[in-house]
Design a binder for these strands. Structure first.
Lengths: 337, 337
DNA sequence: TTCAATGCTGACACCGGTGTCATAATGTCG
DNA sequence: CGACATTATGACACCGGTGTCAGCATTGAA
């Protein structure tokens, strides 16, 4: 069984390579008869063009890189799922590249990645989406990129986000409507722009409901479960104890829940707990966490789709979309008694 | 800034392309003087060979595919981490390919993957590692592959596993030593060979401690959290209720814990619960789950490393290794009262 | 009827590497 | 010192596609 190449197809069909190439790429200036003939040979010989040869000729790799540095495995897989789907739609492949934002010489790392892998474009996921040094670098290298869940919009690039501020607002208001006034807040990792956004939403909800913001109720976390434990320890020891805790993601919320349970507190009777992200753990624990669900797959899918179409035909119009986040109510929040 | 290719290096160094190529690939028959000279030019021009051109010439892609179909995000990311590390060590890239074992026409799906991506090799993770149809297909196509966590060893291929049977034996014996005699068991997904292995270990521990195996205490799960809930419902309603439950993975164990808690049972005072895999959730919930930790990254790393070395120089000697699994004791198991 | 415009097709170079083979330079030995 | 083996190097084809351009056929307008 010999390899089927454009040459075998051409000689079998009795036309030139170039004509076969024209049919492959749906170029004009091929008579219908010829096109039909070639297409038939494609089927007969079960021909698939070699992306590597194509890549060499066009100086493209048909590969999109996906950068991430995230403690949440579920977030990572959701990002991958969305990105993969978009890639497959356009015969691209996805190269995953976990790396540390604060690792030694990130830019060098990325430069090497670009050198050795010849990526056609890059998807930036948090916290890279809003890392100016990296964005500037990619711009200078003229590497197309798309940003997922970025907070900064004043830019001419592709950016798909969901409304973190609004989500945080809604879940905080949900707690307020249940009668809570003393609502502790655990911040996320300072490198993530979502951290600031969620904090803003929390404060806006307090303000718009006439509740005074209290600095003492705010703890610094970093999205990791472990940081949630530390923050929870401080918060649960406060006198008087807040009646609710809103953690910036579900892992930290789960940590609060664990500690509260260890301290014999009943959730939600003694204290309400809310998270963010709707990670699997939110429904794997008891009580299930009230949280905010974001369309992560959808965001990434749109970002990559736009990125690919931008690569094939560069356009000036930026693509910037904000998708909706949704409140999911579970058992961890209840009316104050 | 022009592109730096092998041609520019050659003319700049005053030698032929071929000589540059020889230096690149550490081939013999280059005088030390010439080699030095060329290496210096590499540095000066900051040259990196184009893997696409190389791939075309050698009919290789320098890409390894990674197949998986697994509900556990943490398992997937661990697999990816190990595989990526091995790939980077050898200037390979990793292409992730989630797909359904029982999906429509798996073989076709994979065939298309091979056609369009020109993979140099494939890593099979459970449940693909022990799926005969796929293995046979890859063999017939002469695609190098490596199997991770496969149970079947009578094969001449690369296979790296950990000892599921022994792990299950140890954790069951751990329960027995705590005084438990009525130990329920929740099976995993029948497509995974680990399911059978873990069950075997459970039975061996019972047998070697003179406890009679009781069919009534065994439930069919499929590794998903949801299936754990179903199994838990049945188990916790048994009269008399077993004093311990050993679930084939942590998600199902977490489900048992959730249901037990909802039923006002104290864990581990009223009932002990053990899991398998040491997934993040095992330490994110309260009480933390006693479980078995497997070196997933290490397994995948070894498998991919071997796969790549097999690709560069095919050898007949199969590489088959079994790594150790380790018992991790947390709060969810305790002596019977 | 003639000439320009347009449509269709193929020859050929090119992308950036590697493989083959011929040849020049050097070393070895009787 | 000449015959021969060995080492070092380069010319050139090749991998499987795409881009450029020339040439021929056909069509439309003058």
């Amino acid at each position: 069984m010999k390899k089927v190449t454009i040459n075998s197809v051409a000689s079998y069909a009795g036309v030139s390579k170039k004509t076969v190439s024209r049919v492959l790429n749906n170029e004009p200036n091929v008579s219908d008869a010829t096109r039909e003939k070639v297409l038939k040979v494609f089927k007969e010989l079960d021909y698939t063009p070699n992306p590597i040869a194509r890549g060499l000729a066009q100086n493209r790799s048909f590969i999109i890189g996906c950068l991430y540095d995230n403690p949440s495995k579920s977030y990572i897989t959701r990002v991958q799922t969305g990105a993969l789907a978009a890639c497959h739609d356009h015969n691209y492949n996805l190269l995953i590249h976990p790396c540390e934002l604060r690792g030694q010489d990130l830019i060098n790392n990325i430069e090497q990645l670009l050198q050795t892998s010849r990526l056609d474009g890059i998807v930036l996921t948090p916290p890279f989406s809003d890392f100016p040094e990296l964005v500037t670098f990619l711009k200078s290298k003229k590497i197309p990129y798309a940003r997922v869940a970025s907070a900064v919009l004043e830019d001419d690039s592709i950016s798909v986000r969901s409304n973190d501020e609004q989500g945080a607002f809604e879940i905080t208001e949900h707690l307020i409507k249940l009668g809570h006034k003393e609502i502790a807040f655990i911040k996320g990792h300072p490198d993530h722009s979502a951290t600031e956004q969620r904090f803003k939403g929390y404060r806006r909800a307090l303000a718009s409901n006439g509740i005074e913001f209290n600095e003492r109720l705010v703890e610094e976390g970093n999205f990791s479960y472990h940081s949630g434990v530390d923050s929870a320890r401080t918060i649960l020891d406060l006198e008087p104890r807040p009646t609710a805790v809103f953690a910036s993601n579900d892992y930290m919320a789960a940590a609060v829940l664990k500690l509260a349970t260890q301290m014999q507190l009943k959730v939600p009777d003694d204290i309400s707990i809310a998270g963010f992200d709707n990670a699997p753990i939110a429904r794997h624990i008891w009580p299930g966490l009230t949280t905010i669900a974001q369309p992560v797959e959808e965001m990434t899918h749109q970002a990559v789709t736009q990125l690919i179409s931008h690569i094939s035909e560069p356009q000036e119009t930026p693509y910037q979309v904000t998708l909706e986040a949704k409140l999911i109510t579970r058992e961890s929040t209840a009316a104050i008694k």
